[in-house]
Design a protein around this nucleic acid. Structure first.
Lengths: 121, 121
DNA sequence: ATTTCATTTCAATACTTCTTGAAATATTGA
DNA sequence: TCAATATTTCAAGAAGTATTGAAATGAAAT
């Protein structure tokens, strides 16, 4: 486990680009739903009706951006969403919000908190 | 104020595409930092060293995606980040995480909460 | 060893999106 | 009305990204 450091702008942009594609967005969300156990590439291809070669390219983009991780199990490769990286991306997006004014900023905290709660229902 | 509804996949994808560009990402974050008061286009162009026509195109993309809002003040147009929309996008990204298992899901909630706090320092 | 299975790699075409500068619009001030 | 300011619109070349199918890799089963 390598030490995590704040995202750079190009890194954050790469992650957003990776998600900015309907196919990859579906892939990522399917992996988020699958949780830490992840899913093998083949099952993703089947479930989302994406050709294996196309899926492979998309998974390479997501993984290269640091949003997903792979592990091998026999002849399959199991992909999982990196939720810590995801939270860091969110943090990057709203960094320094409201110029740091805690009063104005409160609503952002509240909204993000609500988003987190809502996500887990 | 129109009622908000959950994002559709193409809408979320449009918002991510809007952010998936270094120039627009800088613009968006500058607006997040500016808070609800927002900033006139001209000042953004100056501060970020982007040509007016290019900036205008980028702001149109962000606004079209629903991530920023405009209002007119004299001959300037003042843009502001839509932080509620931003929180909804985050919520969409991690929806149904861990298949809804509250135990696994706890870490996501914790990470997002931490991201929100960190953003406001 | 050979076959089968899961996945990736490659190369080419097709498709989108960026950027630029000039011209247009709209608002204010003289 | 005329000039100045703030911003947007437009068109076109330049650059980047997606998709496809065939071939290659690597691991397991026979």
């Amino acid at each position: 486990m390598t030490d995590r450091v704040d995202l750079t702008e190009p890194q954050a942009c790469g992650q957003l680009s990776a998600l900015a594609h309907e196919g990859r967005l579906r892939i990522f969300r399917a992996l988020v739903a699958a949780g830490p156990a992840g899913m093998p590439a083949g099952r993703l291809a089947e479930q989302l009706d994406i050709s294996p070669s196309n899926l492979s390219a998309h998974l390479a983009v997501l993984t290269g951006a640091g949003l997903t991780q792979v592990r091998k199990a026999g002849r399959q490769r199991i992909y999982a969403a990196d939720l810590v990286a995801t939270a860091e991306l969110v943090s990057f997006l709203v960094a320094d919000c409201c110029g740091g004014d805690p009063e104005l900023c409160r609503s952002v905290t509240a909204n993000l908190g609500a988003a987190a709660i809502k996500a887990c229902n």
